[in-house]
Write a protein that binds this DNA or RNA. Structure first.
Lengths: 346, 346
DNA sequence: CTGTTAGCGCGTTCAT
DNA sequence: ATGAACGCGCTAACAG
């Protein structure tokens, strides 16, 4: 049914195998190219009969619209850039899932960028991403290099920064404060009587800010001691298990605070193998918990981050702004907060 | 430094804020647009002096190339479509990471598509993806709808199907046989003396084929009984814990086989809370293990899938093919296999 | 409701 | 080593 009609002398010489174009459909349907374009993009502006003829012609030619031409002509790419450090972390994977789940039904496709955890990579990737002229950008974090920030500002594209908090967002912002997380965890654990802490953190800037917040929390209370260890990426259970073993061998600890839930599971494995009662002899605090580890291993405490809510709101803000004809920075922040979940809680 | 030079009368009326174009850079540099294009894309064809003038002009204008125009003019999008069911699963996240890790340094950007687990979604997403004219496609699975397969064939784009095995790949294929996994697990566990099995599988077609392979393995051996349960997506520890609790309440079981490692962790939690020795009283078999759960909880067995190897090879095959000037289907398959990891192994 | 005209910003091709 | 002309496939803007 979709055979290429041989009678149609294709436009130029070497288009040996190229797919059908709008003009091909138009010729087959016996209408002008513009009418085909309308029949496809704004069917309500076209009469029923021609719409049907066009549909038939589309099937007959096997036409697939060329959106790169469309984007160039209309200055609307229907592309959203989504920049996250990694997808190999359940938290960011959750964000990607929800953002795409909202955008895809609205006809937006996602250009994914993996920025790692360094501003340099972010800078490079942002440049290549901007060259696609996306209609919107979702970007993880809000501590950018000067050049990144400048490009963001001059790009005149709706932008949502996520997963962090700042006083002067570039445009829109949905996230939470990492310092606040650290401080809250410190206060929470101190209140429950823990005093000697091990900290296992991934080598990433936001993780370090959570650690800094934690330490500030201890200092503010004038109590508690801590040992800090950094692990490489990607975080994994063996890292958590190995680092906690090292910490427990050399120090007497009440509690271990991890920068992800997967590290916390590794710590749990180590505690179990040592016969340490969790959380009575040793408290274990994770971060994120998008796989709901805490629901299955209730001895695990965690800082629950609602990645789905962040993704959802970011995508919705973006959609709203992309729908507006005039570009204007919003300058609004939304703090979705976090929740410390503990076996004692609820 | 990047101020828009006001003396330059921008081409047309309403480009109030549009970014600089190639012609703008050319004017500032005092050369022809074509020379700027070359200085940027093929610097070796341009004299050192003009190259430097162009570089300066680029900085001065804040020029960011418009790759949608470039793609239209050159018929090379430098875009690779990557279609996976989800990224909220460590296995596919690992594939995404490695594919992007290989492609980004080569100047390719990734258009991500989430197909869920249904051929219908795959069909829809493939259509929108093809409209961007990607230079290559990585697609999960090889059981497509008729329309999908036809579009794939007529798209004339290098394609790698991954994560499955087939006799007649559309183009290139890197994966493993799900039936073989199921059968191997059955034989492995039977050989170790297990007989009464619980199967917890996600509601996905490849998972079902692994289950079918497992059952075929039992029937081939003429031994073993099984109870099957399906869980919803996304898989999570609570699903594993809940389903295994239900199974263990109503049946006397030797072993529980899960369609993912995260389910297996939930089963482990349930076993621990019941005081069941693992794997002596109850064997637990996962699938994937890209978070290396088995390394930290050695009581867990698993079918180890090397998602990184799959992503790596897929990306490399694609790069090679995209570099070739003439399009030609390869028709080659690569079985990367799998490995059953058991506490008894090694 | 439908058609015509005129580019979108760039790379290919050929000339110099 | 550099430039000029042309068109990639589509849509905005206007006309009818």
């Amino acid at each position: 049914m979709t055979a290429m009609d041989d009678s149609s002398t294709r436009g130029r010489s070497s288009r040996s195998t190229g797919s059908a174009r709008l003009t091909d459909v138009a010729r087959v349907a016996g209408v002008a190219p513009m009418t085909v374009s309308r029949a496809l993009n704004r069917p309500e502006l076209v009469s029923e009969s021609t719409r049907l003829r066009v549909q038939r012609a589309v099937l007959e030619t096997g036409y697939v619209p060329n959106r790169v031409a469309g984007a160039l002509a209309s200055s609307r790419s229907r592309l959203v850039a989504l920049l996250v450090p990694t997808v190999a972390h359940s938290l960011f994977a959750e964000v990607v899932q929800t953002v795409m789940g909202v955008l895809a039904p609205q006809g937006y496709q996602v250009l994914l960028g993996l920025t790692g955890y360094t501003p340099e990579q972010e800078e490079t990737i942002l440049e290549t991403v901007l060259s696609r002229r996306p209609d919107g950008i979702v970007l993880t974090g809000c501590r950018h290099s000067a050049l990144t920030r400048q490009r963001l500002l001059s790009a005149k594209v709706p932008l949502v920064e996520i997963w962090d908090m700042s006083d002067d967002p570039v445009d829109m912002l949905v996230g939470f404060s990492h310092e606040a997380v650290g401080r809250a965890v410190a206060e929470h654990l101190l209140a429950r009587g823990y005093r000697r802490f091990g900290l296992i953190s991934a080598d990433d800037s936001r993780g370090r800010r959570r650690v800094a917040g934690f330490i500030a929390g201890l200092e503010g209370a004038g109590e508690g001691t801590y040992q800090l260890r950094e692990v490489g990426t990607p975080s994994s259970m063996p890292w958590g298990r190995g680092m906690s073993a090292e910490l427990l061998d050399s120090h007497s600890l009440d509690a271990i605070v991890c920068s992800s839930d997967i590290l916390a599971l590794g710590v749990l494995a180590e505690a179990q193998s040592r016969g340490l009662a969790v959380p009575d002899r040793l408290a274990i605090m994770g971060f994120g918990d998008s796989s709901y580890a805490g629901a299955s291993f209730p001895a695990l405490s965690t800082v629950r981050i609602d990645g789905a809510a962040i993704g959802l709101r970011a995508a919705e803000h973006l959609l709203q702004r992309m729908a507006q004809p005039t570009f204007e920075r919003a300058g609004q922040s939304q703090d979705v907060g976090f929740e410390i979940i503990d076996r004692d809680t609820t």
